[in-house]
């Protein structure tokens, strides 16, 4: 490809320099969309959250139900993200390093949570662990509650978020090959040392990136969690559920104050994501 680099270090292809009005129109459409559909709602969330002043905002967030929702959301993330990190590394390792029957099936199945509607994902767990479900009687006999309780929420969230880490790692590890790992083994390193000293440093940015996305989704998941949670205030409401409940009860400040926390999480995630992409690009 013939590219020229101008004084600002930007590649410009003269054949792609369309007339000014085309460029202006396309750019305005893109910017307009972002402002209308991304920035405006964000501003609105913050505007509504603070519409009755800072005191009302703080008061809404220190409501016991809101605090319980924050705690539950954090608990779900803390339980889900490490498990899916381990799972993601194991899956990526197996798919890129071993040959086995059903490998392409496994690769496809990893994407399943992305292609299934979250409501269905939630229903699967109700069907399995609910009172009328497969394991319902057994769970009842052992006095354990999964559905309409924290374990169910964690299970549903694990299911929804398990592709993130694996999908980040698989292409990278495929591209890297395994010569460096073989080299480490031939130099006398054990399998664990090879992983921690050679593999992990090479995949760390992609891994963090996957963990970050996994975390954002774990905290923000609504559909699947909504099905298994039962919406018990102060007990099984995560932040997204708490927002819905508050809004339905015309508690606008409460809903938007909680929403501002999730919006803040999204912004932090975006900033970290750009940083990790920049790090990864640097090698």
């Amino acid at each position: 490809m013939h590219t020229l680099v101008d004084a600002h270090g930007q590649a410009s292809r003269s054949a792609l320099n369309d007339p000014k009005w085309v460029r202006v129109t396309l750019t305005s459409i893109a910017v307009g969309f972002i402002v209308l559909f991304l920035c405006a709602p964000l501003v609105l969330v913050l505007y509504q959250a603070f519409s009755k002043g800072l005191d009302a905002y703080i008061h809404a967030l220190s409501d016991p139900d809101a605090l319980a929702a924050v705690r539950l959301t954090l608990l779900v993330a803390v339980a889900t993200v490490p498990l899916n990190t381990v799972f993601g590394i194991a899956a990526a390792w197996a798919i890129t390093r071993f040959d086995f029957r059903g490998k392409s099936l496994l690769t496809t199945l990893i994407d399943l949570p992305f292609s299934v509607s979250p409501v269905i994902s939630g229903l699967i767990f109700v069907l399995m662990f609910g009172a009328q479900g497969w394991f319902g009687e057994w769970l009842l006999a052992h006095d354990t509650k999964v559905i309409f309780a924290t374990p169910g929420i964690i299970l549903a969230t694990i299911f929804i978020t398990f592709p993130f880490v694996a999908r980040e790692l698989i292409p990278l590890m495929q591209e890297m090959g395994f010569e460096e790992e073989e080299a480490a083994l031939s130099l006398g390193a054990s399998g664990w040392k090879t992983f921690f000293l050679v593999t992990l440093p090479n995949i760390k940015w992609a891994l963090l990136y996957g963990v970050l996305l996994c975390n954002a989704r774990a905290m923000g998941e609504f559909g699947a969690v909504s099905v298994v949670s039962g919406h018990i205030r102060g007990l099984t409401n995560t932040l997204p559920l708490h927002i819905e409940v508050s809004y339905n009860e015309y508690d606008v400040i409460g809903a938007f104050a909680s929403a501002s926390i999730l919006a803040g999480l999204a912004i932090v995630t975006l900033i970290l994501k750009s940083f990790l992409e920049w790090k990864q690009g640097k090698g």
Binding site: E179, A183, L185, S186, G188, L197, V198
Partner: peptide, 20 residues
């Protein structure tokens, strides 16, 4: 015997230096 215990030195075609 596993490769890590054989006492061999292996030089790979594309060198496989640890890039980090």
């Amino acid at each position: 015997e596993h490769v890590s215990h054989r006492g061999i030195g292996f030089v790979f075609q594309h060198y496989a230096l640890f890039r980090h």
